[in-house]
Write a protein that binds this DNA or RNA. Structure first.
Length: 697
DNA sequence: TTTCTCTGTCATGAA
DNA sequence: GCTTCATGACAGAGA
């Protein structure tokens, strides 16, 4: 059935793409979503994850239970989304797609195109997508042996979505989904790690031809080479060189411009680090600088000779990198994703600073004004920003931040287990810089607070959960360094103990993280520590021999909570205590959220008042300046008037009397000498005209 | 000892 | 009617 689904999926979508290429638009969504449910079922499977629901809603609708974040169903869902996005994007000119796809397609010296990583259902995306978007290169592409192409390409790993200079909403959604898949889900690196997947799919590999063994060999060598030179982020799988991190801007191009044999074999040495490929391609979908970044991952690649003899992949790159770099300059979105070090490096390579063209035009006064306004904007309070922030904070009730992240979206057990397992696996492979804070940061569906690594370590060990809503909300895209989280001062004092009822005797085995990640000695110490830290409810629960953790009692959704209660034969006293624990636990977190919101509101108001004061001072200063300049203008006009009037002579050569005559400025700029009585009448009439206008205002 | 702050808990209302 | 959440009020612990 699975193969049938894959076959139909590939076939239909390939056909759709072909139709699109010849100008016939086919809306696959229509067929997949509503028109032909059985067909959709065949193609996409019965999972609700294949609906058009956004990812947030996906988790929401699934309530965190239907599909585990690491479930293979999610992979299928993302795959389907990618395919549909590419199909929808076929009628748009999308040059950059070429680069993204080129990453994962290469040819071994025997001439057969092979993919580096087994995955499911990507054949169409890779093969047809390339044919579509490469445009003029299609000829080259089509001239290649097609046999086995789709079959091999379907084994490609995550392929970045089509990215064009003007990102569409679909593209952004897709990028977001992939990015979340990478980071936010808390999926450990093992999810993307080639070697890890390789173990899972050894069976598939064995059924393949001898090429598989060759790939494995290359994989090992590549991994070793990379391990020597690169640091690997434990969670995202991103690799970066251990030394200082200079960006060779020509790296991307060089990769594709090598001779087919050498280049492909060399690039294939990169293939083992599927985590790199996936993440890089993912970042390329978002960032223009990724083609540069890739050079970081492979010093060997940079040394490839620039040759125009690469018929397969060479044409795919330049336009892409150019457009992408133009769209996502290192100073732009890159700043959202990369730490300052990387950005700084990228900026260094961007050339010398341009002189400020306005520098000479701004005098001190203007600079003062501008700086004042900047100050007002930066430090304080823009009403629009304030309202946005307020929305953030209002919605950021910690546990009710986002419906998809509500405590009910992940059970305590799942949240804790997934969090702990991913954290442990991530921390095992991550560098020491990756603290436990970042581990919990990856999972935002959990509940409770923990701000220090010690607490979190304990929670990881014992199955309790931590939650840093601000971390995930504010640092999702820009977060790289856990130390940067210290920018949230109001989190510093949050260090509550929410390790409910975590005595070893009461622990559910299912809640425990993999035993391999813990040392027994440390666990005992942690148990002792927890013993001392247990709250009253925890002691009560332990005394009453409640057979599950307080964490579960508090955080499970009501359905599962009732289900849990039904599984055990509990006395009335036990049931009463359990319900009290649940009520108190929820109320405790609600109170914390309430107080935090209150504090945020006060702080925001304080900032708003400060900004208003600053604005008021600035306006008063501007008013004084205006009055001063107005006074000067009046004096100037007066002196000019007297000078002009004093030079006027009548026909007898005598000066006019200021008491009998006056000068009047006409509308056309001319100056008339009129009798003073007439001038006073006109002035009076003008004043009378002005009054109604002022009243109207 | 007093005062202040933080935190947990209860009661209550709204959704 | 039940559950959850928000919030005011109160009390206890600790600095």
């Amino acid at each position: 059935m699975l193969s049938l689904k894959k076959y139909l999926t590939e076939g239909l979508l390939q056909f759709t793409i072909l139709l699109s290429l010849i100008g016939v638009r086919v809306d696959v969504d229509t067929y997949l979503t509503s028109q032909l449910p059985p067909l959709r079922e065949i193609i996409l499977g019965p999972s609700s994850a294949y609906t058009q629901t956004q990812f947030h809603n996906l988790r929401n609708t699934l309530d965190g239970y239907g599909i585990h974040p690491k479930s293979i169903d999610l992979d299928n869902y993302f795959t389907a989304r990618r395919l549909l996005s590419q199909v929808r994007a076929l009628d748009r000119f999308q040059v950059p797609t070429t680069e993204v796809n080129a990453w994962l397609v290469h040819r071994d010296p025997e001439g057969s195109v092979s993919g580096s990583q087994p995955s499911s259902g990507l054949a169409l995306e890779s093969s047809s997508g390339l044919q579509d978007v490469t445009g003029p290169d299609n000829g080259v592409r089509e001239s290649e042996p097609e046999q086995g192409l789709s079959e091999d390409l379907e084994d490609l790993g995550a392929v970045a979505p089509p990215v064009s200079g003007d990102l569409t909403k679909e593209d952004i959604d897709l990028i977001d989904i992939l990015w979340r898949q990478d980071i936010d889900l808390g999926a450990g690196r093992e999810v993307f790690d080639y070697s890890h997947r390789q173990k899972e799919q050894d069976v598939d590999k064995e059924s393949r031809d001898g090429r598989g063994e060759q790939e494995d060999t290359w994989a090992g060598e590549g991994s070793d080479a990379l391990a020597r030179d690169l640091l690997v982020d434990g969670e995202t799988g991103e690799c970066f060189p251990a030394q200082a991190m200079e960006v060779n801007t020509s790296g991307g191009e060089t990769l594709y411009s090598g001779p087919p044999g050498d280049a492909l074999s060399t690039s294939y040495s990169l293939a083992p680090s599927t985590a790199i490929n996936q993440n890089v391609s993912l970042h390329q979908a978002s960032l223009g600088s990724c083609s540069q970044d890739f050079s970081l991952f492979s010093p060997e690649v940079e040394s490839l000779p620039p040759a125009a003899s690469s018929p397969v992949l060479l044409p795919l790159v330049p336009s892409n990198s150019t457009s992408l770099n133009a769209t996502f300059s290192p100073g732009g979105l890159a700043g959202l994703f990369f730490p300052p070090q990387l950005n700084g490096t990228a900026n260094d390579t961007a050339g010398p600073e341009l002189p400020d063209p306005l520098g000479g035009l701004l005098d001190e006064a203007m600079l003062d004004e501008i700086s004042l306004m900047d100050l007002a904007i930066e430090e304080g309070f823009n009403p629009a920003q304030a309202s946005r922030l307020e929305e953030e904070f209002d919605s950021d009730s910690g546990l009710s931040l986002d419906s998809s992240h509500s405590p009910s979206s992940l059970s305590g057990s799942e949240g804790s287990s997934s969090s702990a397992s991913s954290a442990s696996s991530a921390s095992s492979s991550a560098s020491s810089a990756s603290s436990s804070t970042s581990s919990s940061f990856s999972e935002e569906g959990a509940v409770g607070y923990s701000s220090d690594s010690e607490t979190l370590d304990l929670e990881e060990a014992e199955g309790a959960v931590g939650y840093q809503p601000e971390y995930s909300k504010f640092c999702r895209m820009s977060y790289q360094d856990p130390s940067q989280l210290s920018c949230l001062p109001y989190l510093e004092h949050v260090g509550h103990n929410h390790t409910y009822n975590l005595a070893p005797s009461a622990l559910d085995a299912a809640d425990l993280p993999p035993a391999g990640g813990l040392k027994r000695g440390g666990k005992e110490k942690q148990a002792d520590f927890l013993e001392k830290q247990m709250s009253r409810d925890e002691h009560r629960a332990r005394a009453m021999k409640i057979p599950f953790t307080n964490d579960k009692i508090i955080n499970l959704p009501v359905e599962e909570f009732n289900e849990l209660l039904s599984k055990y034969q509990l006395s009335e006293a036990q049931l009463g205590l359990i319900r009290d624990i649940r009520r108190r636990g929820k109320n405790k977190m609600a109170a914390q959220n309430c107080r935090r919101r209150k504090l945020d509101t006060i702080l925001n108001l304080e900032r708003a008042v400060e900004d208003l004061r600053r604005d008021k001072a600035r306006l008063l200063r501007e008013k004084a300046d205006s009055l001063r300049s107005l006074r000067q203008m009046k004096q100037k006009v007066q002196s000019l008037y007297q000078e002009v009037f004093g030079r006027l002579r009548d026909e007898n050569g005598r000066p006019y009397s200021p008491s009998q005559y006056a000068l009047q400025y006409a509308g056309d700029g001319s100056v008339l000498l009129i009798p003073r009585a007439m001038a006073e009448q006109q002035a009076h009439a003008r004043r009378q005209e002005r009054k109604p206008k002022e009243r109207r205002k």
